[in-house]
């Protein structure tokens, strides 16, 4: 071996002698973004797994919570005025408080997603081009109304009272649905949710896919993070966006190949442990009186919201 060692490996550069180069290295946005996303997924996963067990909702049976979620999401979608949506929002806020969730983190996520999937999606409806009504914020004045195919564009374009109301209502609906979903997710460990869905007769195939996806997301984000570190260890200079894209394309192929292999291995491992086609669960705990009381209370409050 010693005789075959390449001569360049025997070179010993002087310590600390290096060519001074000015300037900073920028990591390509696409690469940094993917690594960041993987980090966020992993962090969320860990936080979910470790969700506090001492709050009000944490002590309630998962079946009650899943039914509560379904019932209240339906109520949120049925309400046609803003006030009941605000009441529901306040009710969820109280539950978040009682469940001792981290308020800042919780609402940061809810409002972030609510802004994109609620407000931004609905915002065009605020204009009189889409929602007719009384203009409260005139923006553009055309010389004459325009007619294009089935569309009619009025001469005065602006924000209408009815439009604003509609946008606010839709945004509140999205925010309420999101906060209800996060509330149940953050107070219920994942296996409990699967168990509750099984009891509620959700098909086994769906549950198997859900469970495997849940585990795989974590493995996937860990692989992405490791790949980023491996690239970083050999990154000597700034990589261009083209190089970053090429690297990502290559790594996507790698992940695809690895996922396929893992899929086969996991399936074989399941078969090896006697899997047929149904999920068998160990003793599902009995509902306690407390669970029933809370279930009835939620039902009562839900009906109240339906009536107002």
């Amino acid at each position: 071996m010693a005789s075959r060692i390449p001569s360049f490996l025997l070179d010993r550069p002087l310590p600390g002698v290096f060519k001074q180069e000015r300037g900073k290295v920028n990591i390509p946005f696409i690469e940094e973004g993917i690594n960041h996303l993987a980090g966020v997924i992993k962090k969320e996963y860990v936080q979910w797994e470790l969700s506090s067990q001492n709050g009000f909702l944490q002590k309630i049976d998962a079946r009650i919570k899943v039914l509560f979620l379904l019932f209240f999401v339906i109520i949120v979608s049925l309400k046609r005025s803003l006030l009941p949506e605000l009441y529901i929002g306040f009710f969820v806020f109280v539950l978040v408080l009682l469940s001792r969730l981290r308020m800042g983190m919780f609402y940061k996520r809810v409002f972030f997603l609510g802004f994109f999937f609620g407000f931004l999606v609905a915002f065009p409806a605020a204009f009189n081009v889409i929602t007719k009504g009384e203009i409260i914020g005139p923006l553009i004045k055309l010389s004459r109304p325009l007619n294009f195919w089935i569309y009619h564009i009025p001469a005065d374009i602006g924000i209408t009272r009815e439009g604003i109301y509609g946008v606010a209502r839709l945004t509140m609906r999205v925010i309420n649905s999101l906060s209800l979903s996060f509330l149940v997710l953050y107070t219920t460990p994942f296996p409990e949710i699967v168990r509750a869905l099984k009891v509620l007769k959700v098909p086994d195939t769906f549950l198997i896919i859900l469970s495997l996806c849940y585990k795989y997301i974590f493995i996937f984000s860990k692989t992405v993070e490791d790949m980023h570190l491996a690239k970083k260890s050999r990154m000597v200079r700034e990589a261009s966006n083209t190089e970053a894209r090429e690297w990502i394309a290559g790594r996507m192929a790698f992940i695809f190949r690895k996922s396929r292999l893992r899929c086969e291995e996991v399936f074989n491992a399941m078969i090896g442990r006697g899997f047929s086609d149904t999920i068998k669960l160990y003793s599902i705990r009995k509902m306690r009186p407390k669970d029933w009381y809370v279930g009835i209370l939620f039902l009562f409050i839900g009906v109240l919201f339906l009536l107002i």
Partner: peptide
């Protein structure tokens, strides 16, 4: 490690 010269020295020196 965001400084070009140092990044080059470090990555060249440590594998």
């Amino acid at each position: 490690l965001r400084e070009k010269g140092f990044l080059k020295l470090f990555r060249k020196s440590v594998g």
